[in-house]
Write a protein that binds this DNA or RNA. Structure first.
Lengths: 240, 240
DNA sequence: AACTGCTATAAAGTATTACAAATTATTCCG
DNA sequence: CGGAATAATTTGTAATACTTTATAGCAGTT
């Protein structure tokens, strides 16, 4: 349920497999991968398929191949941390709350700023989309419906910024947070508790009040974050 | 001088070439690339090298290959806008001030937040690094030296956040802004004019005052941005 | 006559194999 | 200690067979 990463290509499967291994830390930075030939044989694919996969991983900054030296895992500072795949692999392998905190921090930085920008630059069409999402939230009958509408709301706000870099960043972070966000509603009974927060954001954007929008959104995500954190703690407690 | 993207691999060159074409808009989204065979022949490389390149572009979300249909350029919403290469290609092909504004906006969002986080979480080592960078700024003798130290300062602040996602985002945005930032110093004579701003940031981080650090950094980047904007205007005027 | 659904075909990407070339760490010799 | 030979490993090319699937054509039904 985290990510139905369906890849039909052979090389795509290899990318996933190796990516997970590397990001998961099973092959540490600085360490060398086996020779192309051996690795290909070991993974039951042709060398070509393996090489195509390695080119992709290398584009993501995970590995570096040099002749004679072999292919080695690069240090984490070179990784494309904002790549959707890399993030997904981290989520899959590193369920440490530490990482979730970092994601949540990013969200808490982006979203208020985005709300402010949206209030400044929204056009009628974007506003309509935000309003529609809000209406859907208000009309939601269960947590599932609410989650979908909630995501649509935040997405619509981001789109209203007209800054595709921000949109891209949001979508990456939001996807990675994915499953955790679903849990940010407290209980099944009062999943709509944050509706008033969203209303304030909507109103501020409608009235073109950047600072008000920023603050309202700030409250909204901070609240959501504390829920995530609480949930994470509970999860850790349950694990122990 | 924007980016000395030196690629020794053949497929890397193909990636650059095709990437530039696509991001530059010469091959529009929805449009199909020529068949692998023809394209390979046209670019004077083997089909294998071309395919390796296409896998990379496909990982960046630029293209999508399906059997029988061929390879087509995907819609821009699917592009990995935060990929360093994609950003570089946009910078190379789209010197519109519009895009620079978007980058600057991102910077203005990240850096103050980063300064606040740094004030909260810095450890002695990080602080020392920031102080060293500040010292280098103060000691700079010309614009070149100052630019290097300036970048090091901001980098050090980002590292003090201990959030690699933020670091990654910063480095991507900063690299893309690259040449524009160099110009953010007003004239050769008073390139140090923003030193006091930086001092305030440093002090706030040293004293662990997140809000003070945020505000100081906010002023710093806003100032830098207005210089960039002024510069951009002049450039446009010169072009006309 | 027009629409629906199956089937055959061929076009395009996918995958494997084999081999030649380039690069460079290491070794060995002067 | 330095430079040249060597050997290991990735890079690049090419030829070939496989797989998927869009499309056209045919048949059958309404």
């Amino acid at each position: 349920m985290v990510k139905p990463v369906i890849v039909r290509n052979l090389h795509g499967q290899v990318v996933q497999e190796l990516g997970r291994l590397i990001v998961g830390g099973e092959i540490a930075p600085g360490e060398n991968l086996p020779r192309e030939e051996l690795l290909a044989e070991h993974m039951k694919v042709s060398r070509t398929a393996l090489r195509e996969a390695m080119k992709v991983l290398s584009a993501k900054g995970l590995i570096e191949s040099r002749q004679k030296t072999g292919t080695r895992v690069r240090d984490t500072i070179h990784w494309n941390q904002l790549d959707a795949d890399v993030l997904a692999w981290r989520c899959a392998s590193m369920p440490t709350d530490d990482f979730v905190e970092k994601l949540a921090e990013m969200r808490e930085i982006i979203e208020p700023a985005a709300a402010a920008a949206a209030a400044r630059r929204r056009d009628p069409e974007q506003l309509a989309r935000i309003e529609a999402a809000y209406a859907a939230m208000a009309a939601a009958n269960d947590r599932e419906e609410w989650s979908v509408a909630d995501l649509a709301f935040h997405e619509a706000v981001l789109h209203a910024t007209h800054n595709e870099l921000m949109i891209s960043l949001f979508s990456v972070v939001e996807t990675a947070l994915g499953s955790y966000l679903e849990l940010s509603a407290r209980k099944a009974s009062d999943f709509k508790y944050s509706l008033p927060h969203h209303k304030k954001v909507l109103d501020a954007i409608r009235r073109r009040q950047p600072e008000v929008a920023r603050e309202a959104m700030q409250k909204t995500v901070a609240d959501s974050r504390s829920n995530i954190r609480r949930h994470a703690k509970r999860r850790v407690a349950a694990k122990a």
